[in-house]
Write a protein that binds this DNA or RNA. Structure first.
Length: 187
DNA sequence: AGGAAGATCTACT
DNA sequence: GTAGATCTTCCTA
């Protein structure tokens, strides 16, 4: 069962923290455990795609909680889930997952057999899972969607935080969350 | 037409 | 570990 829409209708930092350990599922055959996330706010966050207002690309950030927002940067697609109510842009970037199921497909798409290099980065995991701009607007709380996020079980783990990676201008708060010691975290 | 963007890969010290 | 090239759209001029 996918996580309910209400799970995403909250502050993105809370959602980012609690998405750790959850399962990203695509086409019911590719599964990955989320081990690294980042929260992004809207108009008040210079690193957010919504900062400069609605454009053809960023308009997906104004969708309702639990919608997919896929953005391309430097030739790679990055997968985000929108948080908070419709009309209030914010979201969570999925930065890394740990491969769980469908590893053969991931190896084929990524062109490498090194499991550590399959999904250990935001641009890598979209390639491994076959996620592109066409998936914009997908409702990840709807069981019929191609992309959903499920509860999943994971042994106890410790959550660490840091500033966000790669952004030109970060906010003072720590908005990156990751599973401490997990080898699939991007760095 | 040119540049920016939340990254990755490769080839070195 | 760090440095540089290169990746693809869309946005702004």
């Amino acid at each position: 069962m996918p996580l309910p829409k209400s799970f995403y209708d909250r502050d993105p930092a809370d959602v980012a923290r609690e998405l750790l350990g959850k399962l990203l599922v695509v086409d019911d055959k590719l599964r990955g455990r989320i081990v690294e996330t980042e929260a992004y706010y809207g108009l008040s966050d210079p690193a957010s795609r919504a900062f400069k207002g609605k454009t053809k690309l960023s308009r997906w950030m104004w969708e309702d909680a639990g919608s997919a927002f896929v953005y391309m940067v430097h030739g790679y697609w990055l997968f985000n889930v929108i948080t908070e109510r419709e009309g209030k842009p914010s979201g969570v970037l999925i930065r890394a997952v740990e491969p769980v199921e469908g590893i053969d497909y991931m190896i084929e798409r990524r062109g490498t057999e090194n499991p550590k290099n399959l999904t250990s980065g935001p641009g890598k995991l979209t390639i491994a899972f076959g996620i592109t701009g066409k998936d914009n607007g997908t409702k990840v709380y709807d069981g019929h969607s191609r992309i959903v996020i499920e509860k999943g079980e994971m042994a106890r783990f410790k959550i660490a935080t840091s500033g966000r990676i790669g952004v030109r201008e970060d906010l003072p708060e720590h908005l990156r969350f990751f599973v401490e010691g997990n080898k699939f975290v991007s760095r």
